[in-house]
Design a protein around this nucleic acid. Structure first.
Length: 1166
RNA sequence: GCCGGGAUGGCGGAACUGGUAGACGCACAGGACUCAAAAUCCUGCGACCGCAAGGUCAUGAGAGUUCGAUUCUCUCUCCCGGCACCA
């Protein structure tokens, strides 16, 4: 029988018509068998039509879907259109064509091209995000977010693309440029809708649930990076206040009814303030159990010093006394702080107090306001409601803020009430991941936008600060984050107090600190942070080492059964500038090279010690001291020659050789070691015996910051004689013991000597929390999602702005809010959408009161529609709800999701968030879990033949239509799979496609060999197994090569049975459905090959009768022979040893060992 | 800088849990068929030495573990992706 030649165009057309006319791949609403939801990322139907990249993922998912159907599963495999977006709108601006028309045309093109490839989509479920029946539910999701407080309106500085004239989400800005058009984005402060993706209820789940997903590590890593969690602490630094004229304030603390100066928070507060150098008066007022106003006020006026720098603090009834004092003295004071002040009669309930009648309860508020520089009211949340009402009333009268807290003891009666202190002194919160370096914080930096900058800046520095702020505001983010640029900043004139040691540290502003991360302020630790170090060097700020690196010698670790000798030592690094070499010792008694080094003797500093050692061991006397390079390094090792463990705490001192002047060295030293001069390149860890070497080399290169973990050194660790010059700036005396005391106070009973930085980090956070100076804190880089676009072609945000009721949701039964027609699509650029110009659309009534109101004119971003489309596929025509829960339960979650990696942090993060939200509000049934995509496969980019990215501008785009016309859809499908692993990027090579085309021709030719029968060759059984395995693991390139191998083998056969060829076609049908179907029907079958069940293989048939065995001698292949596969180990051994080729390699010797891997190899060791 | 991933012939790539490196395809060379060309078929195709049998070297570089390493461990180089004055 002679068949017609393979005419791909005819064959493909014929079967596509059959399939699409009969909705051949429709999924049931309620699967009765095992379900599988196989999803492709739906495309944006651009005007350019399909790209060869599209069919890559679509083919892979189609093969998998067809395979699963043949495995007897119900498969949901849908397709739709993500059709809102900028290109259609930009096209409308240019041509005046309505975007809906362009979109319709583009969809038609895409659909024709996709259908020409024979994909098995369920077209009855096709959806389109621009269809009002669809975006009704996109709007509905927005309303739910709004209802739960997760969508909010704010005027926020956001990324603004000046070309596209719209705001962008952070995720849409890549390297400071607009992801779409590459324009450098600007910061613009406009009214925006934001979605609270950072909400505590979601952010940790978005991060942690990544662990449960079968996604590539790189995508998961991208999401983790983007969420950017860091754990550390928030620490409050108090700012030294300036009273009028820049003077430091003094404090007058007045106790309350039955109070005493040694009660409540007063002693502790006094101590804290005094430890920071302030003058504090705490008068004991007369008659505390039966106080009289006149008596107490007069007592204060007579006995206390009050001047323009005085801040009066009044607790409870003391607050009333304070106000009366101010009314009476007729002179200005710095400020008034009322700590839970006593209550006016009309607010009182309960038992009568003696002072109710001995005090008058009227105030001259204007007078108090006039004479006090500032006023603050502190309120304790533990107290009763009527007091809160009173404090609010009082604060209003005094024009003062009310600051609330939960006091340690109700009514601020605790012995330690840090909230009071923090409100006396302005505090600035910083975030740090390294609270263990707190002792090394030598200055503070605020971002130029920090709200407290102008408040704390002194008059003297105001001009410079404002100038700097202005400059910073004019820089783009791209400029500000340019790492290469030198850091800049200005001093504010203010000082903060480091809470751990009460050091006074300067407060600067600098644009290397970002307002948008953490608290917008940092504590700078120049010894342990590179950025801070660079800044400190430039502005000559102090640098204090607090962490010592610690190395344990890997080759000679300390031994637990040996004694340990600890010693302070010094390494002298002597550089000869004339030869650019370094002085080392070549030891004679050991095979070592070292620097000149030795112990530091009592009373000696390290520089003296280093000089002495150089003189003794090498004789050089004329050394010029350069510097101590960094802090000390501890090394632990076992000293073999001494049979003891050594703990060396070493510092390195750098000298230059000023002249060759030398003294004779002793015979003893001569016998021990010889001085040699080595170039820097010879100073290598493998050639030097020096555990600290990597640190010294690093520091010689100028890297003085150590940001790793280590051991705490002073002042945290008062370790005896640490040589003085180690610290570039010494801390104040007394600081050293401070932490020890504090640690004891919080119940840590040490020993803290030798604490690692990790241990100390925990201890210090405990201390911060205990003392109210800070707390453990977590920070994220993720920002809320900017959700409004000032453009036309998107879903209108269903909100009405009512003058009376604010933002009011459009009622659900009024959805969808239809996108109206406009005449001009041009974005206004003012931050308003083109919709703002349509008066009769904008003007509406408030759904709450019916009064005139205006519609929201911003539209949603493209991600809004793509967030949840995969839910809609389960129930695409439902007009009552987003989707029927029973249908969602039947199909969700998506089992396999295939698409490009470019959506790593955009679509994939947004969709996970929205899915979790829909899960929480019960739309997503709880049985299906709160992760939408269980397995994700990212197909790699198909590059152009030149290895570059395909793009219209480069002119290297391959049009799939041409390939389909010339080689056929089956060739294109198989070739795209054959090119390489699905996940890898790979260049297109049109010449290569002939390989698969030839293969398909061979398959076509094979029908000449078909004869009746049901015999299957061993290769066919093997193929069934291989193809199944390959598809399951998405190793589709090897599947294609396995098909080719099979046809190569079949070409040598006499005949192929009808059964065998049918089996082969069944396996081939997911890959080349048209050809497989055509040959299937030519075999005489009336049904469809894709409806067959997946063939089984007979495992017993896979075993070959004979196997080839390799014989190795010492790991090298020396012989190969074929044996029966069932051969015994003994026989195999004997045959191997007896081989003529092996004999010469054995050389008559008896093998040491013979390793036999059954059916594979014999390895002989001699 | 930090975090991921990778590097195998002229090219795309293959090699299951450590066991014959280079499957399959492209390109290339030689041959058959043809008046000729295309198509098709056959043969060869990592490098070096050798007439051959065969040997030696080869999976980015260098070390290590092992009878045996593309595969495991360490160091380094380069490439790709993500993040990036993120405190």
């Amino acid at each position: 029988m002679v068949h017609k030649p393979y005419d791909h165009q005819k064959v493909e057309k014929k079967w596509q018509d059959t399939w699409y006319a009969s909705d051949a791949f429709t999924a049931p609403d309620h699967p009765t068998k095992h379900k599988a939801y196989i999803l492709d990322m739906f495309p944006y139907p651009s005007g350019d039509g399909l790209h060869v990249g599209h069919p890559e993922g679509y083919t892979a998912s189609d093969i998998f879907s067809r395979y699963l159907r043949m495995q007897g599963k119900n498969v949901l495999h849908p397709m739709g259109w993500d059709a809102f977006g900028l290109p259609a709108e930009n096209y409308a601006i240019k041509t005046g064509t309505h975007p809906s028309l362009t979109t319709k045309q583009n969809i038609a093109t895409f659909k024709r091209q996709i259908q020409a490839l024979g994909f098995s989509y369920d077209w009855t479920r096709e959806l389109n995000t621009t269809d009002p029946e669809y975006y009704k539910w996109t709007q509905w999701i927005f309303l739910k977010l709004f209802e739960k407080g997760l969508a909010y309106e704010a005027e926020a500085p956001i990324n603004w693309c000046p070309k596209d004239k719209t705001g962008l989400a952070n995720e849409e800005v890549v390297g400071g440029k607009c992801d779409r058009c590459g324009t450098v984005v600007e910061k613009k402060n406009i009214r925006q809708w934001l979605v609270k993706i950072t909400d505590a209820k979601y952010i940790e789940r978005l991060l942690n649930d990544l662990d449960t997903l079968d996604w590539s590590t790189s995508i998961k890593q991208s999401q983790r990076n983007w969420i950017g969690k860091s754990e550390g602490a928030e620490i409050d630094f108090t700012i030294q206040p300036q009273a009028h004229g820049g003077q430091e304030p003094n404090f007058l603390i007045l106790h309350g009814y039955t109070g005493r100066v040694d009660k409540n928070f007063i002693p502790n507060l006094k101590e804290q303030l005094e430890s920071q150098g302030y003058v504090v008066q705490t008068p004991q007022l007369p008659n505390t159990t039966a106080p009289k106003e006149v008596e107490q006020v007069q007592y204060v006026i007579d006995n206390c010093t009050i001047d323009s720098s005085t801040i009066i603090v009044g607790h409870s009834l003391g607050g009333v006394v304070a106000m009366k004092v101010i009314q009476k003295i007729n002179q200005p004071i710095a400020g008034l702080v009322l700590v839970a002040p006593a209550v006016e009669p009309e607010f009182r309930t309960g038992e009568e107090r003696p002072f109710w009648k001995t005090f008058t309860w009227d105030y001259d508020y204007n007078r108090i306001k006039k004479f006090s520089g500032f006023r603050i009211v502190l309120s304790d949340l533990l107290e009763k409601d009527e007091r809160a009402a009173y404090l609010g009333y009082l604060a209003k009268k005094l024009d003062a803020p009310v600051r609330e807290t939960t006091a340690n003891k109700s009514h601020f009666r605790g012995t330690n009430e840090p909230f009071v202190l923090h409100n006396l002194l302005r505090t600035i919160k910083v975030f740090t991941t390294r609270p263990d370096t707190l002792f090394g914080a030598t200055y503070m930096v605020l971002s130029p936008e920090h709200p407290l900058v102008s408040e704390i800046t002194t008059d003297e520095h105001r001009k410079a600060v404002e100038k700097y702020q202005k400059q910073a505001s004019q820089k783009s983010d791209l400029d500000r984050t340019d790492l290469a640029k030198e850091k800049t900043g200005v001093f504010t004139g203010a000082y903060a107090i480091n809470p751990v040691n009460n050091e006074k540290i300067p407060v600067w502003i600098a644009d290397y600190v970002l307002a948008s991360y953490g608290t917008g302020a940092i504590m700078a630790v120049p010894a342990h942070d590179e950025r801070d170090h660079a800044f400190a060097k430039k502005y000559e700020l102090p640098i204090v080492d607090v962490i010592m690196p610690h190395v344990i010698d890997a080759k000679n670790p300390p031994r637990s059964d040996k004694q340990t000798l600890e010693r302070q030592s010094v390494h002298a690094i002597v550089h000869d500038p004339k030869t650019d070499r370094y002085l080392c010792l070549q030891w004679k008694i050991f095979p070592w090279t070292t620097f000149v080094m030795g112990g530091v003797e009592a009373g000696e500093d390290i520089i003296e010690a280093a000089k002495r050692e150089v003189k003794e061991e090498a004789g050089y006397t004329d050394l010029h001291f350069e510097r101590v390079i960094g802090g000390p390094v501890r090394a632990d090792y076992f000293a073999t020659h001494k049979d003891e463990n050594r703990r060396s705490i070493a510092s390195a001192v750098l000298f230059t050789l000023a002249s060759d002047a030398r003294e004779e060295i002793t015979a003893k030293e001569k016998a021990k070691a010889e001085p040699v001069w080595l170039p820097l390149s010879a100073l290598k860890p493998e050639s030097m015996r020096c555990s600290e070497l990597p640190f010294w080399l690093d520091r010689l290169e100028g890297n003085f910051t150590y940001s790793g973990e280590g051991l705490m050194i002073r002042p945290a660790l008062p370790m005896s004689p640490i040589p003085k010059p180690v610290l570039e700036v010494p801390m104040s005396p007394g600081a050293a013991g401070h932490l020890g005391n504090e640690l004891q106070r919080i119940g840590y009973d040490g020993p803290y000597e030798g604490l690692t930085s990790q241990e100390f980090r925990k201890a210090i956070v405990g201390w911060l929390e205990k003392t109210g100076n800070g707390k453990a804190a977590t920070n994220y880089k993720l920002r809320d999602w900017v959700f409004s676009r000032q453009r036309y072609w998107g879903e209108p945000i269903p909100i009405v702005h009512c003058p009376e009721h604010g933002n009011v949701a459009v009622p659900e039964d009024k959805l969808p809010v239809l996108l109206p027609d406009v005449k001009k699509y041009e974005p206004t650029g003012t931050g308003e959408s083109p919709l703002a110009g349509i008066k009769d659309w904008v003007n509406t009534t408030c759904p709450q009161c019916g009064e005139p109101a205006k519609r929201e004119t911003n539209t949603m971003p493209q991600w809004a529609g793509s967030n949840w489309y995969f839910l809609r596929y389960c129930d695409p025509h439902n007009n009552k709800q987003l989707a029927d829960p029973a249908k969602l339960k039947a199909w969700l979650p998506v089992d396999t999701y295939i698409g490009g990696a470019e959506h790593a942090v955009l679509h994939l993060l947004y969709a996970r968030f929205i899915y979790k939200f829909l899960f929480d509000i019960g739309v997503v049934p709880k049985e299906v879990g709160d992760e939408p995509f269980i397995k994700l496969i990212n197909q790699g980019l198909i590059l152009a033949e030149d290895g570059q990215k395909m793009s219209k501008s480069r002119g290297n785009v391959i049009n799939p239509d041409l390939i389909v016309r010339e080689y056929g859809a089956d060739s294109l499908r198989m070739f795209e799979m054959f090119m390489g692993p699905l996940q890898d990027a790979k260049p297109w090579n049109t010449r290569g496609i002939v390989g698969v085309r030839r293969f398909l021709e061979k398959v076509w030719q094979l029908q000449e060999k078909v004869q009746d029968g049901s015999e299957l060759h061993r290769e066919t059984h093997a193929l069934v197994k291989q193809i199944g395995d390959d598809i399951k693991s998405f190793s589709l390139n090897t599947a294609v090569s396995n098909f080719m191998k099979w046809t190569n083998a079949a070409a040598t056969w006499e005949s192929v049975s009808k059964m065998e060829f049918g089996t082969f076609l069944t396996l081939l049908s997911p890959f080349a459905p048209h050809l497989a179907q055509e040959l299937w029907s030519q075999l005489g079958h009336k049904d469809q090959v894709h409806a067959q069940s997946w063939p089984n293989f007979d495992a017993s048939k896979l075993i070959a009768e004979n196997v080839e065995v390799v014989v190795q001698v010492n790991g090298k292949v020396r012989d190969k022979f074929t044996v029966a596969s069932g051969i015994s180990v003994e026989d195999l051994k004997a045959q191997a040893l007896g081989s003529k080729k092996i004999q010469p390699w054995l050389g008559g010797k008896t093998p040491k060992k013979i390793i036999v891997v059954k059916g594979k190899l014999v390895s002989i060791v001699i």
